[in-house]
């Protein structure tokens, strides 16, 4: 997987000289949203569920936090993140309850949630018919994205913190390891005393929370949010996870894989306008084809590795 990324970077650097110097920070910034959501999505995928409402949740939480800031209820940056994360977590909780106790298939629940969230945004008590724009936000919040520490934007540090936190949580804590157990074999997990439904709900809460957080990060980055602003993001988050070798059936996947997947997608994203600057049409086409090719290549590589392992096993 790493190989693909390096190959791709090399290819682009050849075409566009100076690409890496200009864009490494940009890539970092672009993949931050994908990474934060990817961490939550990883949890959901691990327990054998899926969430395609993340983009809508992102918009909703950013809209709610933005409205609160516009009306002067919130001033601090920290509170924005708290509100956004909470909104996301609540929606995640509802999704989790429906999928675990309600036994509705996650695709359907989250598809429905997507409709509901998107429809809630233009309601009068949230955004009404307006959108959040620059004048609605405090200066501190707007400048927050520009703050750099050691030459790297603060947002990247937040991303790294979230990723590390999730990585450690999944690998080294007991609750985190339950995710794997529930995903690979729910029956066996139940037998051994793991609260399957509770774990699933927790996974969805985490996913919703990261989506809400990503919404605030996006609001900080672009200073604007409206309904449908993030549509399509959910697909790229899932694609990042799949590229990182996470199994959609549940039970298998590592944080580091998601990191590589997200970086690869961010690279594709930032490289394509550079390569085909005058042709959005070409860029759409290549984005599709590259992601599809990367997913398939990934499968081929894994199959190949398995074959070699088997052959080695036979030889022994």
């Amino acid at each position: 997987m790493f190989l693909i990324l390096i190959l791709f970077l090399a290819g682009v650097s050849l075409r566009v000289p100076g690409y890496l110097d200009n864009n490494s920070v940009n890539i970092l910034k672009n993949c931050s949203l994908n990474l934060v959501m990817g961490a939550g999505m990883l949890c959901v995928l691990l327990v054998g569920s899926i969430d395609i409402s993340v983009a809508a949740v992102m918009e909703l939480s950013a809209a709610i936090a933005g409205v609160l800031m516009r009306d002067g209820h919130i001033q601090s940056i920290g509170m924005m993140f708290v509100v956004g994360t909470l909104v996301g977590a609540v929606i995640g909780c509802v999704t989790g309850l429906l999928t675990s106790y309600g036994k509705v298939l996650p695709i359907i629940v989250t598809l429905g949630m997507m409709y509901v969230c998107r429809a809630l945004i233009p309601m009068d008590f949230i955004l009404g018919m307006n959108k959040i724009a620059r004048v609605d936000l405090t200066d501190a919040f707007k400048d927050f994205i520009l703050v750099r520490f050691l030459g790297i934007p603060v947002i990247a540090y937040i991303t790294v913190a979230v990723v590390l936190l999730f990585g450690i949580f999944l690998k080294y804590t007991r609750i985190g390891r339950r995710f794997y157990a529930v995903g690979s074999n729910p029956e066996a997990a139940r037998m051994r005393g793991v609260p399957v439904n509770g774990t699933k709900i927790l996974a969805h809460i985490l996913c919703g929370a990261t989506a809400g957080m990503a919404g605030i990060m996006r609001l900080a980055e672009y200073n604007a949010i409206e309904k449908g602003a993030c549509s399509g993001m959910e697909m790229f988050v899932i694609a990042a996870c799949v590229l990182g070798g996470v199994s959609v059936m549940g039970g298998y996947g590592k944080m580091i894989g998601v990191v590589i997947g997200a970086i690869l997608i961010a690279t594709i994203d930032s490289a394509i306008p550079q390569l085909f600057i005058n042709a959005t049409m070409m860029s759409e086409f290549f984005k599709g084809i590259l992601i599809l090719a990367a997913i398939l290549l990934n499968v081929f590589l894994r199959r190949w590795a398995e074959k070699r392992r088997k052959m080695r096993g036979n030889a022994r």
Binding site: N26, Y222, P273
Partner: peptide, 11 residues
Amino acid sequence: YTKSYDTCKAI
């Protein structure tokens, strides 16, 4: 918005 921002960056 996002796309325009990226396009401008590329320019």
